[in-house]
Amino acid sequence: MDIYESAVDEVAAAGYSRIALGVEYKGSRYKGWQRQADGVRSVQETLEKALSRVAASPVSVLCAGRTDAGVHACGQVVHFDTQAVRPERAWVMGANAELPHDISVTWARPMPADFHARFKAVARRYRYVIYNDPIRPAHLGEEVTWNHRPLDVARMAEAAAPLLGTHDFSAFRASQCQAKSPIKQLHHLRVTRHGQMIVIDVRANAFLHHMVRNLAGVLMAIGSGDKPVSWAREVLEGRERRQGGVTAHPYGLYLVSVEYPQAYALPDRYIGPHFLTGFADLPS
C-alpha cells in the first residue's frame, strides 16, 4: 500500500463527492499505472493531469489494480474525490479531450462516500492474448505476445484445471510482490484458440504481482511440449518462484474487468480487448 491508498482515502471527506471512472489504455508507452517519483511517464499521472484540468483543481486517483509497464487495460476502474460539480458526460468527454490517444475514459458515475475502487472490488479478470504463428505479426505488435512455436491449447487447458480454486500461489508471484498473503481464489482459467490467437482468460478475487504473466509462462511451456501437463500442478505445489519458468511478456496482458457488489450499480461494458470483440466463439 502506498501513500495514495491509505486509510484516510477509504471514505470521501465531508464536502467532497466521490466519482468513479472506467478507464482503458494501451500501456506500451508508460512505465506502468502508478505515478513514479522520478517523473517518468505513468498512466496515473497522465490521467490525473487531464482530470485536474476538467475539475479546475488538483485531482488524485486510486485504481482497482496497478498494472505493470507495457500492460494494457480495457476495464480499469478508478475513483477520486472532488469539490467540483460536473455532469457525468463532462467528466468523460472533458477528460478524453485532454488525454493522449492511448488512454480513454469510458464512463463516469457519482458514488457513495464509502466506495473504493480497490478495496470494494470482489473480483478481477485478465486476458492474456498470444499470437501463435511462425511469422511475427506486423500489426498489434505491442498488443499481443508472439509465440512462434505451435501451442497445443488442449494441453494448456488440461494443465490449467488443477490451478482452479483457493491455493497458495507463491510460485506464481514476483519476488517484489507486496501482497500480505499468497493465497488467492481462482474462479476460472480458460484457454481457447481463435484462429492464430490464443486467449488465456483468468478471473480471481485478487492477483499477486506478475501472477497472470507467470501463469501464462507456465502454460505456454506446456503448450509447446517443453514441459508435461503435470508441471503446472508441480509448480503450484512447490510454492517456489524459481521452479516456475520465465515470466511471460507484458504486451499480451489486459485487465478486462473489475467486479463490485451490485449495490454500486456500475456500468457494464463488453469484455475486451477491442480486437477480440468480434470473435463469436470467445467465452464471455
Rank of each mutant, 00 (worst) to 15 (best):
M111C: 15
G245T: 11
Q36W: 08
Q243G: 04
H72M: 08
I198S: 05
S257E: 14
C74Q: 11
R118V: 00
T145W: 11
P283V: 01
D201I: 11
N96Y: 06
K227M: 14
F80P: 03
V218Q: 12
Q243C: 06
R125H: 01
M211S: 05
L140C: 13
V61G: 01
Y251T: 07
V129T: 12
S175K: 12
P283D: 01
T46D: 08
C177K: 02
A248Q: 12
T82Y: 04
T247M: 12
A95G: 02
R269K: 09
R124T: 03
G278Q: 09
M1V: 12
G225V: 11
Y128V: 08
H210S: 12
W107L: 07
G238M: 08
E158H: 13
P261G: 07
L99A: 11
H210G: 05
R155S: 15
A221N: 11
E88L: 04
T277C: 07
Q44R: 12
L189M: 10
V256F: 02
N96W: 04
E234P: 02
D133M: 04
D38W: 06
S42D: 06
H249Q: 14
E98C: 04
D81Q: 04
E48T: 14
H79K: 08
H79W: 04
R213P: 03
G65K: 06
V258R: 07
L163N: 05
T192K: 00
P261A: 06
V212D: 03
A161M: 14
S104T: 10
R18I: 05
T106K: 05
M220E: 12
Q83E: 06
A204S: 05
A95I: 12
F275D: 06
Q243T: 09
D38N: 14
G27T: 10
H116T: 03
M211G: 04
I3L: 05
V122I: 15
G39T: 08
C74K: 04
L164Y: 00
V129E: 12
F169K: 02
R155M: 14
K227R: 15
S257Q: 13
L47Y: 03
L282C: 04
A206D: 10
F207D: 02
N214A: 05
I200C: 05
E143N: 15
R239Q: 15
H249A: 11
G32A: 09
Q36I: 07
L266F: 03
V235T: 11
R125F: 00
H249Y: 08
L51S: 09
A55T: 05
W146T: 12
V229T: 15
R241V: 04
P250M: 08
E240S: 13
D201M: 10
F279L: 15
A265E: 10
H116E: 02
S57M: 10
A90F: 05
D114F: 00
V144M: 03
S284L: 07
V8A: 10
P182S: 07
G272M: 09
R149M: 08
P228R: 14
W33L: 13
A204T: 01
S170Y: 02
K49Y: 05
A73V: 10
